[in-house]
């Protein structure tokens, strides 16, 4: 009984902690700049984002994002400006609603399909056969033959 209460309290506390942490906060302009820069690829680096890269180019791009945020541009307007300048290549991930967005669906499809296969196998669970099967006997024979002699 005490164990059951402990489990309930523990799960509740975890749920509350995660819920508290997940409450969306008002985004400061600096947070917005960071979020938008992390979507952009630093054009002179090997796959680093504009937010992460210490290069001069990235620094200038961060400044441009900050300037646009200050001027009150929306996220989509800022993205459109970079798309116009560099093409889709400048974004480190394709949008979800796009022919190339298929890449977002593959992991989900793998998890769902894999879990379904595991679930189906569990459903078919039946008691194991009582008598040893031919395959088990063959296995024992193999073991007996190749076990080092002592």
């Amino acid at each position: 009984m005490t164990a059951r209460i402990a489990i309930l309290i523990g799960l509740l506390a975890v749920a509350v902690a995660v819920a508290v942490a997940a409450v969306p906060r008002a985004e400061s302009p600096a947070d917005r700049v960071a979020r938008l820069s992390s979507e952009l690829r630093c054009p002179v680096c090997q796959g680093l984002s504009v937010e992460d890269s210490p290069s001069d180019t990235a620094r200038q791009m961060r400044q441009l994002v900050a300037q646009r945020v200050q001027q009150g541009w929306t996220d989509d307007q800022i993205r459109a400006e970079f798309r116009a300048a560099y093409g889709d290549w400048i974004f480190l991930a394709p949008p979800l609603f796009d022919p190339r967005g298929a890449i977002w669906l593959v992991p989900l499809a793998v998890v769902v399909a894999g879990s379904a296969i595991v679930a189906v196998r569990m459903r078919r669970a039946a008691p194991p056969p009582a008598a040893p099967t031919e395959a088990q006997l063959a296995l024992l024979r193999e073991r007996a033959l190749e076990e080092p002699a002592e």
Binding site: G47, S49, W89, L92, I103
Partner: peptide, 10 residues
């Protein structure tokens, strides 16, 4: 023929 990037956001 298009160039795309896949990085940390994905």
């Amino acid at each position: 023929g298009d160039q795309v990037s896949i990085g940390s956001p994905y």
